[in-house]
Design a protein around this nucleic acid. Structure first.
Lengths: 200, 200, 200, 200
DNA sequence: TATGAATGAGGTTTCATTCAT
DNA sequence: CATGAATGAAACCTCATTCAT
């Protein structure tokens, strides 16, 4: 890992725990093991570290969004009963909510949305707008598959989305992201799906 | 309004918008119209302002919780179709989410939950635990009234709770709390209730 | 002398010797005997010290310009042979070029004219435009008094002005302003006047 | 142009506009298109750039001074009426005040005379002592040619010198050195000479 | 020749806080 | 009650310079 990467890594960990303002350049450098002036060789200023992180995150997200359609058409893996479960699992969890970099970025955004307009927008896009669209897409597929009517789907997606937000907040965005918490999250998601699917 | 009250008022407005750290004693005093040294006659230190605010909020909440049972038994007002609507309207909205002091305190807590353990707990209690209990109570009453089974109620309360959180975040906790936003929030709550009640 | 005045005094001495940039807040505070943070109680920032100095200088200058006409009509003192000598002596020297605050301000402006547009303008006004106008006025009086023609006067004032600039630069704006240097300056000015007056 | 020359060129332009201190190694390298560390291959340190510039200037000046006597004896060109005009034009203007390198060096010295003792001396020598001597020489030739008495000459040279300084400052040392400014300067010099020569 | 990476020293500024009046 | 003045600690940042490659 280059020094620059190490700085970004340390900064992300600290920012996502204490918030951008509460972390000083000194803190970061102390942890990385460099002098403060060295940091300014790699980054223009403190803000630049944050910007580099969000830029990296944006790229990551774009990559994910780019692959969404392929995944959507993949056959379900074993243990996955319904259309779209694959996407939820692979995408929302493994490649996003559970993925270490993204997970920390989400925490960071959650904190900084109140201090930084650009981050607020990014947070809304990546945690609300984008997921909502994907979820809507899945529920529409389910509607087309006859699982329920299109009108039902429209309401269900909102319920689902709200519920996922709650679970995410509850299990994934505070304290360490342990294997156990991931599993509990996955289990609750699965149960919710079961409940919905059996309702009709 | 005494100077002390004015300080708390100004501090609350600023804290709830920019966060505790980002607001300086200077900022507060500038807005109140006093010198920084004067503030220290009224408060031990900066933290003391925050503590006074949370203390006041705790009292307010306790008052509300104390009155919950009476309200629960009150007959529904006109335009309120279901058991518990009265409570939602009067309590959650008029006396809590819409009430200026509480509304700002919630914003403040939402921001500061990430920087302050005590606030995190208060936030969880007043935005999750307490409301959840009240909502559970209402849904159990509805179950007893035969609207749905107790088992259904247990799931519905979770869905409801998640949905309310989403609405609250969406309408009540960013930007100014206008009359229009309140109405849109109330309308969405009402629609949600309608949907639930008609499901069986 | 209040702390604020002491800061301005020390700053002026240092600025006028080493230039604005080369003097650090630390330098000033060290000399004044206060901590750096104290300085920021009295001044918004470093620039504010400079601005306060120029503001004070502007006021001083305005005061001087305001009194010009009265002086112009005063009778010459002993040892003053020509109309206008009184003004030169009293104004340009005693109240301006020799006056400690102004003298240092001129040095400061001379240095900072190259780094600061506002100061460049102030320098031009107070060292070129204003003095030139006053000198022109005097030479026109001399012309009216028949000492020389108006046309001659127009040229003479330019010569005189250039010569004064040279003398000022030579005697008054580097090193300490000793009594001896003042006298040599005054003597050269006097000689110049003699030479001019006797030419016809 | 070698890298070393490019550095000196860029540095001179920047120093002469903003002053030595205000220009950073970064600034220079940014403009030249090299990394800061590269600069230290060509120069020992920042001061060394300045020293190289003054050394080059000293050489240039010595070359000029060396050729003075020859020029003094050259016959006047067309449009040049008086002894010495040739020298003024060729030397002071074309080869010195108007010559790009010298012009910038003079600006640089004018700024830095207040921050650097060596430069102060160089400035005095090249802008006061040397020119004064040359001018004195010319006026003495004029005196010998019978244009005016030796005593008159001694005063005239001082007036002339002061006037030239004023014109130089006014036309040649701030803002870009345009063709128009050069012509206005030359015209004013010429007029001044006319005025002097016709006075007797 | 040129560069990437690092650094020590120093700069300006903000902030919460204290204390005598 | 309120203020003026002062302060220590810490923040971000810039700069000239070095050195291995």
């Amino acid at each position: 890992m280059t020094t620059k990467e190490k700085i970004m890594d340390v900064a992300l960990h600290m920012f996502s725990e204490r918030g951008y303002e509460a972390v000083s350049i000194r803190d970061i450098c102390g942890e990385v093991g460099i002098k403060e002036s060295t940091l300014y060789y790699h980054f223009k200023n403190k803000k630049d570290i944050l910007d580099s992180l969000t830029a990296k995150f944006r790229e990551h997200i774009e990559g994910l969004l780019g692959g969404v359609d392929e995944i959507a058409d993949e056959p379900a893996a074993e243990g996955q009963e319904f259309v779209g479960e694959k996407m939820m699992d692979t995408y929302m969890m493994d490649s996003y909510l559970f993925e270490p970099f993204c997970n920390l970025m989400i925490r960071l955004m959650m904190i900084e949305q109140f201090h930084n307009e650009e981050i607020r927008e990014l947070y809304e896009k990546t945690m609300f707008t984008d997921p909502y669209e994907i979820q809507m897409d899945i529920f529409m597929r389910l509607a087309k598959a006859g699982t329920f009517t299109e009108n039902e789907a429209k309401w269900l997606v909102r319920d689902y989305h709200a519920y996922m937000n709650m679970l995410t907040y509850k299990y994934l965005l505070n304290g360490e992201l342990t294997e156990e918490r991931k599993q509990r999250y996955a289990k609750e998601v699965h149960e919710y799906m079961q409940r919905i699917m059996k309702r009709q």
